[in-house]
Simulated scan of single mutants.
Amino acid sequence: MAGNEPDFDAIADELHTLAPQDFTTARNRHADALKKTDPQLAKQVRALRRPTQAAWAANLLAHRHGDLVGQLLDLGQALRDAQEHLAGEQLRTLTEQRRQLVRALTGQAERDAAEAGHPLGADAVAEVDRTLGAALADPDAARALAAGRLTAPLDPVLWPGAGKPGSRKPGTGAATKKAAGTSPASARDSRPTKAQAAAERRRRREQEQARKALAGAEQAADKADTRAAEASRALDEAESARRRAETEAEQARAALAEAQDREALARERLTRAEKQARSAEDAARTADDRAAKAHEGVQEAAERLRVSQSDDDQQPG
């Protein structure tokens, strides 16, 4: 739209990259602002639904890492082509690439969510993983992921059209319908031989077996990736706990060393105080002895003075 007029796509893209906790407030704010100027657009905006945590993380991937999501979609198309043509070796190579790319994208989604302040729980991580698997298997799911406006995680399917009622099978298209209107002779000529029919049935069985084997391998890979992610998180938590324990132990050792230093200093001060107390006691006893001797000397001097005075009194004048 021209100028600075509000645009639904811009608003929707903005809202779907907001954390789910902020979605409703921001959506209502946009709708309220548009109510008078563009009621229809306001109604469209208010109809938007808040994404789940996993859907929000997938939307972030689409908006921030479109190149990686594009690689995922290209790989999904290559996998479908290889499966359709029963390219076994190519399937194995692509399946391994799929595991690596899904793991990388899931890890990126976890990092983006954590950096945004809303880390994903184990269930949300598993839902992101399933959403990426659905985008690999189903072109419609791939387009939904690339649009970046998911409100809920996507669930994988086996392969589009495989075993679904009403899906086309080889030989049931327009060419077969046209052949049904030809002459009996030409129809008989166009009928497959028994060997051809048997080969076609065998080919279909092999194709179905390949589909099932691939689906089983992908499910096993998904489970392995989930277990690996859980183990990685458990390892990270254990490592964090170990670092915390080491820090606490180091702090405790430092506190103990400080306490021991204080105890040694206190003992040293106590020893000095005890020595000073003993010295003071010795000095006090010495002072007491000297005082006692001085007292005795005073008494002796007083006695001598008394005796001397008595003698003087007894002599005749």
Rank of each mutant, 00 (worst) to 15 (best):
L136M: 07
L136P: 01
A137G: 05
A137Y: 00
A137N: 05
D140P: 01
A141M: 07
A141C: 14
R143V: 05
L145D: 02
A147S: 06
G148A: 04
T151F: 08
P153I: 02
D155T: 15
D155P: 03
P156W: 05
P156Y: 01
L158T: 15
G161V: 00
G163V: 06
K164C: 07
G166E: 02
R168Q: 08
K169E: 15
P170G: 10
P170T: 07
G171L: 01
T172K: 14
T172A: 11
A174D: 04
A175S: 09
A175V: 04
T176I: 00
A179G: 08
A180R: 13
G181L: 11
G181M: 12
T182E: 14
A187F: 08
R188K: 09
S190R: 15
T193S: 15
A195H: 06
A195I: 11
A197M: 15
A197Y: 08
A198I: 12
A199K: 09
A199P: 01
R201W: 08
R203D: 11
R205G: 03
Q207P: 02
E208L: 11
Q209P: 02
A213G: 11
A213M: 06
L214N: 07
L214P: 01
L214G: 06
L214F: 09
A215M: 09
A217K: 07
A217F: 06
E218Y: 00
A221V: 06
K223A: 09
K223Y: 08
D225A: 13
D225L: 13
R227L: 13
A229R: 15
E230T: 12
E230F: 09
E230Y: 11
E230I: 12
S232W: 13
R233L: 03
R233T: 04
R233Q: 02
R233C: 00
A238Y: 02
E239F: 01
E239K: 07
A241V: 05
A241Y: 03
R242H: 06
R242P: 00
R242K: 08
R243Q: 14
R243F: 03
R244F: 00
A245N: 01
A245H: 05
T247Y: 08
T247R: 10
E248C: 04
A254F: 04
A254L: 11
A255D: 10
L256K: 10
L256C: 03
L256Q: 14
A257T: 03
A257D: 13
E258Q: 15
A259V: 08
A259W: 11
Q260W: 04
D261N: 03
D261R: 12
D261Q: 08
R262C: 00
R262D: 05
R262F: 00
E263L: 12
